[in-house]
Design a protein around this nucleic acid. Structure first.
Length: 577
RNA sequence: UGGGCGGUCGCCAAGUGGCUAAGGCAUCGGCCUUUGGAGCCGACAUUCGUAGGUUCGAAUCCUACCCGCCCAGCCA
């Protein structure tokens, strides 16, 4: 009896486990946080933050961090702040702030009222700096940038103490105040932490806390002419906001001792910094510096060019937030160097769109087909399912008539046996319509096929044959007199190499740009239902791929972006031959 | 040559001394199909950077070595 009850519990437990999403595996950060929560560290609170610098657009790499930080907050019943790390006014703008907010919201995350700016803490940070001066662990240094570099030493040689290291607290306080008042020229002095010029960690060799910089800050205007450095800002900002786990990328691992040092010297509440590896995606770049270069030099149309790995680019390309979140979950979080195959991302969007995208017919490279035995003036309306994966999406009517367009590559004059499409004497199905058989071909003097003549079998209306006769191929098509001319933009990888930074001497990543990353087709013929396509609407063009309406689209001239092609085993067979 | 971090299948990635080293992507077969799509089924690491050692037992512990990434901004 007892065992029966026990067994039931076990079964229930197993069942519950089995329905958990497969891709919610526990990464090392969640493991740490789980433990912290169990041991009641930080009173069991979990509080993260996403801290972008508003000097560029968010990209797919940032998405990992966003999903991690907001995802952890959600998983552990905590909070995630949005904090702009705006300590360097050069290059930071309100436009970037707006784009970042839009992208995070689009990705599906909400920071509620917790929108913060490091610059809001400038006053407080200044106060912290004076505390450290009074404590004798910070000093004003008059070394020029060049001299400071010399004094810093090298990777293998320790640095030397600055000659200004021994100034009294009073003198430092006075100097720092005058720095703040604008009494000294840009770059003439810095405030430095007095730590250890012989430290093997270069970040600890008396790092700069404040620099003199006369630049207009997008939120503070000209209020300040000194700005705090990242290291002197980030930890304290985390501390002020009550962040528990400060997650950042691995290049900050060397900065952690400094993060800890400031918090300890200031005797402040102390969050924990944890580092993880950035994500690299094949055939693209993530470096903000390089992305901005592509934009400024006109290699792409802007930050939101559909070839860019930016969230705005992916959005314009037709990617869904769901697919991107799925992708971030699948690639996980770890610490090893990586180059994630872009096929993984493409898989995610195909999977999402397969379930949700409307199927429509569009002929990208039209070839005229005339059905000789179909009445000249006749048009009929045929029923087409909107998504066979999802019958709830219903169906629509599509016009059929004597003259049609099919895809050029769906006809071949001398095909191999493996070719299932139209060829002289062969019968195929026109999707949702009829079986048609190719009777003859009209060519121009160069031998190029201009038109194909077929006969149809009236008994196969809808695409079924009464006698159970099978056809190998099913083609998409549009009615020539009803279709709309459209522009379709086909996108390919922006770079030719998996790792665009793999270059020879005297070359940079731009020498790996793919000259064929964008192909524009202007003479496409799409079914009439697409006349009202709103920008951003996603479709599956049957047998071709997933497409979405571009903002440039109008009912005069519909424009579609290819998000990703369908998997194409036929192309693969041909390639392998 | 200093410090930090990493190395598990082509790519990501579980694994935290004990059943046959998860899973996903990719790839390759087969089935099915009104999308050569989707779906379904199957194959895919005798071995965890290398070499030693500890142990009844090692991807997991120890030692040495090799390889990769990051750090010498008054960037973040």
């Amino acid at each position: 009896m007892e065992s029966k009850v026990a067994k039931k519990e076990i079964d229930t437990h197993t069942e519950r486990l089995s329905v958990e999403p497969p891709n919610i595996h526990t990464d090392f950060i969640r493991q740490i946080i789980k433990k912290d929560k169990e041991t009641n560290r930080y009173e069991g609170r979990v509080h993260t933050r996403f801290p972008p610098e508003p000097n560029g657009y968010l990209h797919i790499g940032h998405a990992t961090s966003i999903c991690l930080n907001f995802g952890i907050a959600k998983d552990f019943g905590g909070f995630c702040n949005l904090r702009f790390d705006d300590t360097n006014p050069i290059g930071e703008t309100i436009e970037y702030v707006e784009s970042i907010k839009e992208d995070i919201r689009w990705l599906g995350f909400d920071w509620q009222n917790r929108e913060f700016y490091a610059s809001d803490y400038f006053e407080q940070l200044y106060e912290y700096a004076t505390q450290l001066i009074k404590k004798g662990v910070a000093y004003v240094c008059d070394l020029s940038p060049e001299k400071m570099r010399e004094y810093r030493g090298t990777l293998t040689k320790p640095g030397m103490n600055s000659p200004y290291r021994g100034r009294s607290a009073e003198e430092n306080l006075d100097l720092f105040e005058r720095m703040q008042e604008g009494k000294f020229p840009d770059g003439s002095r810095t405030l430095r932490a007095k730590i250890d010029m012989a430290s093997p960690n270069l970040n600890m060799r008396d790092p700069v806390m404040y620099r003199i910089l006369r630049a207009t800050h997008f939120r503070q205007g000209n209020k300040w002419c000194i700005y705090p450095m990242y290291d002197f800002t980030h930890g304290q900002s985390d501390s002020i906001e009550g962040v528990t786990h400060s997650l950042c990328s691995q290049e900050f691992e060397d900065h952690r001792p400094l993060y800890n040092w400031y918090l300890n010297e200031l005797e402040m509440y102390h969050p924990q910094q944890i580092e993880f590896a950035r994500r690299n995606l094949s055939y693209t770049i993530m470096s903000k510096r390089k992305l901005i270069q592509l934009v400024e030099e006109g290699h792409v149309s802007g930050w939101d060019d559909p070839r860019m790995p930016t969230l705005s680019g992916l959005r314009k390309r037709g990617y869904t937030p769901e697919a991107i979140r799925d992708f971030c979950g699948r690639i996980g979080v770890a610490k090893s160097d990586n180059l994630v195959d872009v096929a993984m991302l493409e898989h995610c969007i195909r999977q999402d769109l397969n379930k949700h995208a409307l199927r429509v017919m569009a002929v990208l490279r039209p070839l005229k087909v005339v059905i000789d035995n179909y009445p000249e003036e006749q048009t009929e309306e045929l029923e087409a399912t909107n998504n066979p994966e999802n019958p709830d999406m219903g169906s629509r009517k599509i016009p059929f008539s004597r003259e049609l367009y099919i895809e050029q590559e769906d006809f071949m004059e001398n095909p191999s046996k493996k070719y299932f499409r139209l060829a002289p004497g062969r019968e195929v199905r026109l999707m949702h319509a009829y079986y048609v058989k190719c009777e003859r071909v009209i060519k121009d003097e160069t031998g190029e096929v201009l038109q194909v003549h077929c006969t149809y079998d009236p008994e196969t209306r809808g695409g079924w044959s009464e006698n159970g006769r099978k056809v190998k191929g099913t083609l998409h098509w549009v009615s020539a007199n009803h279709s709309l001319e459209a522009e379709v933009r086909l996108y390919n990888h922006l770079f030719l190499k998996e790792n665009p930074d793999d270059v020879g001497d005297n070359e940079d990543f731009k020498s790996n740009l793919n000259p064929n990353s964008l192909e524009i087709l202007t003479k496409c013929q799409v079914e009439p239902s697409l006349i009202d396509a709103n920008p951003g609407t996603r479709y599956q063009f049957l047998r071709q791929g997933y497409f979405c309406t571009d903002p440039d689209s109008s009912s005069e001239k519909p424009v579609f972006n290819r998000t990703v092609s369908l998997r194409d085993t036929w192309a693969k067979i041909q390639k392998n031959r």
